[in-house]
Design a binder for these strands. Structure first.
Lengths: 205, 205
DNA sequence: GTCTATACGCAGATAGAC
DNA sequence: GTCTATCTGCGTATAGAC
């Protein structure tokens, strides 16, 4: 129970094992359909032993979502904040976003599909981190418009469209190899730029 | 029980009420977390009465997903197949897709988030309809490439990117009014075209 | 940190009357 | 088409020994 904080930040071995198994289980069956008994069986311990590490099932989901989203923000937001042209910032961030989504696919999918099962307060914490990312991206898009490289009337909508597009990827994309992954990461970065540059252009031009 | 077929196609009043309540419930709590008792309570009948209309909880989810996806394909795929320039076909389809996603928001969200809880065979049926839509869009994109209006190396990937972008919308977008909705539908159509036209262009050009 | 044993409620589903 | 009554199993979680 007192290990929950460390779990959120990562570091404790046993707890990492629990989160890993839980991620696999929640991905396959969904959070609600996966039982504490299932999870204990995967870890080859008794259900009651799990309650030594976590006060309840919900906290496991919370730990997965928070750890994933914290790591994500720490990795991707700096790409947006680095001082360089907005189109380069967006391209780098999209690339990193795609790669993160594959490297941490299980957690990302769990976060997207299952976080709504969290109680309101914990859900708000996770959503706060997600909003931070989107808002940062929206500000970069705005900067790109002022600077003239983008032509977007609604930067928040544009950011949401791009994020939704990228977040769809881990649900179905299975890269053949490392090169295939790099190819798609680049392609999505280009897609985002194409979208931001041509968005408000008359479609019949 | 013998009404299941009619339920899938729509038409029976009582069954429509069940599907409507179930859609609301599944959207709010998720399919697994929503109980047959919850659903009965919403309809102000006893749980056992539900089994007169459906053989089990899963069939309700199946009916929601199939009805939604059938209606969707019947409404959107013709836009892609109509004989006209590929960019017009894509723009019309995207517009319709966005509008459908708002008009039938509940069912769309349930289909996206909860269909994985279906048994393999029923899931395959729903996914078959979804693939039909994506493949049709991919073929139109290919035609657009041959014709020179699009520049896309991987039409299937492009179709998935566009579909993921649009399917994200019902999860968060709440239009202020009818004009706001039309605005976003047009914007997404433009986004799709911008993406297909500029995708393979060198991003630093 | 893991165990055995168990509490307690709710899950989906069925039988059979009206 | 809806009801009452009920079955059986599994759900999360706890107590307390080792």
């Amino acid at each position: 129970m007192r290990n929950v904080d460390r779990a959120t930040l990562g570091g404790n071995l046993r707890i990492d094992q629990v989160l890993e198994s839980a991620t696999r289980l929640f991905t396959q069956k969904g959070y609600e359909a996966a039982s504490v008994r299932d999870l204990a069986a995967e870890l080859e311990i008794r259900p009651s032993s799990l309650y030594h590490h976590f006060p309840g099932k919900q906290h496991i989901l919370f730990a997965i979502c928070m750890r994933m989203q914290t790591d994500f923000n720490a990795e991707v937001i700096p790409e947006l904040l680095a001082s360089r042209p907005p189109d380069e910032a967006i391209a780098s961030a999209v690339r990193r976003h795609v790669l993160f989504g594959q490297r941490r696919k299980g957690e990302v999918v769990v976060n997207i599909r299952e976080r709504r099962s969290l109680p309101a307060e914990q859900l708000a914490q996770v959503n706060g981190l997600r909003r931070e990312y989107r808002d940062t991206m929206a500000r970069v898009i705005e900067a790109g418009c002022r600077q003239g490289s983008f032509a977007v009337g609604d930067p928040k909508l544009a950011a949401m469209a791009i994020v939704d597009m990228i977040n769809g990827l881990p649900h179905w994309f299975k890269p053949r190899d490392e090169q295939d992954l790099e190819r798609v990461a680049d392609l999505y970065a280009r897609a985002a730029l194409a979208l931001l540059r041509g968005w408000e252009t008359d479609p019949v031009s």
